[in-house]
C-alpha cells in the first residue's frame, strides 16, 4: 500500500515551472496543505498519478514576499489558495479568482496564523523546525 515519496523542497521562483512540468506529465493536483511553523508557513503541494503521490514543499516566510499562484496551471488550485490565504494569511499572487479574504467568513481574521505558545512545543519539535526534505509515506 505505501510507497515512499520524498518531499521535494523547492523555492517560490521555480514553483510554477515545476508544477507545469508535473501537469504535462499527467499528474493531478490532490491538495495544497499549509502548516504553521514558528517563523514560516510550510506549504505542501501533493500530486497524484496512478495512485502515487508526489509532494512539493515550499516555505512562505512571515512578512516575506508572496507566493506565486498555480491556479494558472491547475484552475482548481484557487480553492486551496484562497483557503490558505484566508486561514493562514499567506499572500498568494495572481490567483485565478481572488476572493480577497471573503472565501471563509471567519470571526477572527487569519485564525490559523498564530504560532503555538512555546510551552506546547516540546524540544522534540526542534527537529521539525528546519524543514529538511522529510520522507512522507503515502
Amino acid at each position: 500500500m505505501s510507497t515512499e515519496v520524498v518531499c521535494e523542497l523547492i523555492s517560490a521562483d521555480c514553483l510554477v515551472d515545476r508544477v507545469r512540468a508535473l501537469k504535462q506529465a499527467g499528474w493531478r493536483l490532490v491538495q495544497i496543505s499549509a502548516t504553521r511553523l514558528p517563523e514560516a508557513v510550510e506549504l505542501t503541494y501533493s500530486f497524484d498519478r496512478d495512485r502515487r503521490l508526489a509532494n512539493l514543499r515550499l516555505l512562505a516566510l512571515s512578512g516575506g514576499p508572496g507566493i506565486p499562484s498555480i491556479s494558472g496551471v491547475y484552475w482548481c488550485a484557487l480553492m486551496y489558495e484562497n483557503e490558505i490565504h484566508d486561514l493562514f494569511g499567506v499572500v498568494i499572487e495572481g490567483m485565478a479568482v481572488d476572493f480577497k479574504g471573503n472565501f471563509y467568513k471567519t470571526a477572527i481574521k487569519h485564525p490559523f496564523a498564530s504560532v503555538k505558545p512555546p510551552a506546547a512545543v516540546k524540544p522534540a519539535a526542534a527537529k521539525a523546525a528546519p524543514p529538511s526534505p522529510v520522507p512522507v509515506t503515502a
Binding site: Q31, T35, A120, V121, K122, A128
Partner: peptide, 19 residues
C-alpha cells in the same frame, strides 16, 4: 479524502489537515 498529519513527538499533533 486526504489526511495530512504532522506529529512532533508530543501528545498533540502539530498539524492536522483534511482535504
Amino acid at each position: 479524502v486526504v489526511y495530512h498529519l504532522k506529529a512532533n513527538g508530543t501528545k498533540n499533533l502539530q498539524r492536522f489537515r483534511v482535504r
